[in-house]
Simulated scan of single mutants.
Amino acid sequence: MALVAARSDRWGVQLQAERKVTWVELTTSLSTPHGHSRNVHVSRGENVIGFLRSAAACTSLDRAQLRFEADAERMAK
């Protein structure tokens, strides 16, 4: 989080019932929302976000699988 704090303008954490969401705001020199085409820094950021979404999806699937297996084991007894 020290890296996020050092590179961001604002960041924070929202605690929810079953998860924690960390958010960050970064200032850019873009004049329009779509002015970042082919900007290497934005591309890297988009890649990181995509990776994190994939990791979160895997974690959710893992939890669902564990729940399914526990329920199946309970039903078998």
Rank of each mutant, 00 (worst) to 15 (best):
M1L: 06
M1W: 03
M1G: 09
A2M: 12
L3M: 09
L3N: 10
A5E: 15
A5R: 13
A5S: 15
A6R: 05
A6I: 00
R7N: 10
S8Q: 02
D9G: 10
D9I: 06
D9H: 10
R10D: 06
R10I: 01
R10V: 02
W11S: 01
W11K: 00
L15A: 14
L15K: 14
L15P: 04
Q16P: 02
A17V: 04
A17S: 08
E18C: 02
E18N: 05
R19Y: 05
R19L: 08
R19K: 06
K20V: 15
K20N: 12
V21P: 00
T22W: 01
W23T: 07
V24L: 05
V24I: 13
V24A: 06
E25D: 09
E25I: 01
L26E: 04
L26N: 06
L26F: 06
L26H: 05
T27R: 14
T27N: 12
T28M: 09
T28F: 07
T28K: 11
L30H: 05
L30D: 04
L30S: 04
L30G: 03
L30C: 03
S31T: 15
T32N: 11
P33G: 11
P33A: 13
H34N: 13
H34M: 10
G35C: 11
G35A: 13
H36L: 00
S37C: 08
R38P: 02
R38K: 15
N39I: 04
N39Q: 14
V40M: 06
H41R: 08
H41N: 12
H41V: 02
H41F: 06
V42A: 00
R44K: 11
G45A: 02
E46F: 03
N47A: 14
N47P: 00
N47I: 06
V48M: 03
V48I: 08
V48H: 02
V48L: 06
V48T: 07
I49A: 15
G50Q: 02
G50K: 01
F51Q: 07
F51H: 09
F51P: 00
L52R: 01
L52I: 05
R53T: 03
R53E: 04
A56K: 06
A56T: 07
A56C: 12
A57E: 07
A57Y: 06
C58M: 05
C58D: 01
C58G: 01
T59H: 05
T59S: 04
S60G: 09
S60V: 07
S60E: 10
S60Q: 13
S60W: 03
L61S: 10
L61E: 12
D62W: 11
D62Y: 13
R63E: 13
R63A: 05
A64L: 12
A64K: 14
Q65C: 11
Q65A: 12
Q65K: 12
L66H: 09
L66W: 08
R67N: 14
R67T: 11
R67M: 08
R67C: 02
R67H: 13
F68V: 04
F68N: 09
E69W: 10
A70Y: 12
A72Q: 14
A72D: 12
A72S: 11
M75S: 11
M75W: 08
M75H: 10
A76N: 07
A76E: 08
K77E: 00
K77M: 03
K77P: 00
